[in-house]
Computed example of a mutant assay.
Amino acid sequence: MDHSIIDAHIHLDLYDADEQAFILRDMEKHGVQALISVSQHLSSARVNLTLSQKDNRIKPAFGFHPEQALPEEKELTNLKLFTEKHHAEMAAIGEVGLPYYLRKKDSSIPIEPYIEILEQFIQQAVALNKPIVLHAVYEDAPIVCTLLEKHSITKAHFHWFKGDRKTMEQMISNGYGVSITPDVLYEQEIQQLVKQYPLSHMMVETDGPWPFEGPFKKKMTHPKMIHHTIEKIASIKKMEAQEVYNILYENTKQFYF
């Protein structure tokens, strides 16, 4: 495979062992140089660390995914201690952010405790000099931008971002990165994001094992899908595919490595 790619956001620990082995065997054939494998919570972080110790193409990120019930104080403390202990082995703090979809299902869930936890992770990213991977969409994104600005964070990656033009302009002005998922092939909202966001601050991801529709319906989410994503980005940007491949690859390398 001539085109090198990096999956900038995948939950490798959520695949079963056979699926993980299949993806890892397949990586070289499809030009996949690395996987940024983000974590859901402490036990997820431990699994991702173990996976990375077995295969150095896996780059783990440690964090607490916000679309779940708040962690106990002890777990949060232990996660932060784990992250500090293994910071040299991790690519980033993540996945962290705010619970947009959880609160859509149950509007009684308060956002303030999640903001407090997110700020703790932002402070840890600053202390450890690491990038941060964010789950922050729609009206939650401006809240997160304000927190990042408060702590002078520049290396912020909004994965699978969705939001309004004003927030997007704020993110672009601050130099924050976004990553594009395979649904760019069939979702106008994501296609519009690609049109508006500069390629210089863009990456590509699968968010696997999250499933996709369109040409990927009923297929296991695999990093090779990124090739379709990049071809679509090139088409939208009216650029040569090879140039887009090169820029996205270098963006991700510079951001994470």
Rank of each mutant, 00 (worst) to 15 (best):
T83C: 11
E84A: 02
M90S: 12
M90D: 02
A91D: 00
A91K: 05
A92C: 05
G94T: 07
G94D: 03
G94M: 01
G94C: 02
Y101V: 08
L102G: 00
L102D: 05
L102S: 06
R103W: 04
K104W: 01
K105V: 09
D106Y: 00
S108L: 11
E112T: 13
P113T: 11
P113A: 12
Y114V: 13
E116N: 14
L118N: 10
F121T: 07
I122E: 02
A125D: 06
V126G: 02
V126P: 05
V126S: 06
N129T: 09
I132T: 06
A136Q: 09
A136T: 11
E139H: 14
E139K: 14
E139C: 06
I143H: 09
I143V: 15
I143F: 08
V144S: 07
V144F: 06
T146K: 03
L147G: 10
L148E: 01
S152W: 04
A156D: 11
H157Y: 04
W160H: 12
K162T: 10
R165L: 13
E169P: 06
S173C: 07
G175E: 09
D183T: 00
E187K: 14
Q188D: 14
Q188W: 05
E189I: 11
I190N: 07
I190A: 10
I190H: 06
Q191N: 09
Q191H: 04
Q192N: 14
V194S: 12
K195Q: 14
K195R: 15
Q196Y: 04
Q196K: 13
P198Q: 12
L199I: 14
S200H: 10
S200G: 03
H201N: 13
H201T: 11
M203I: 03
E205Q: 00
D207Q: 06
G208Y: 02
P209T: 00
E213L: 09
G214W: 01
P215T: 00
K218N: 15
K218Q: 14
M220L: 15
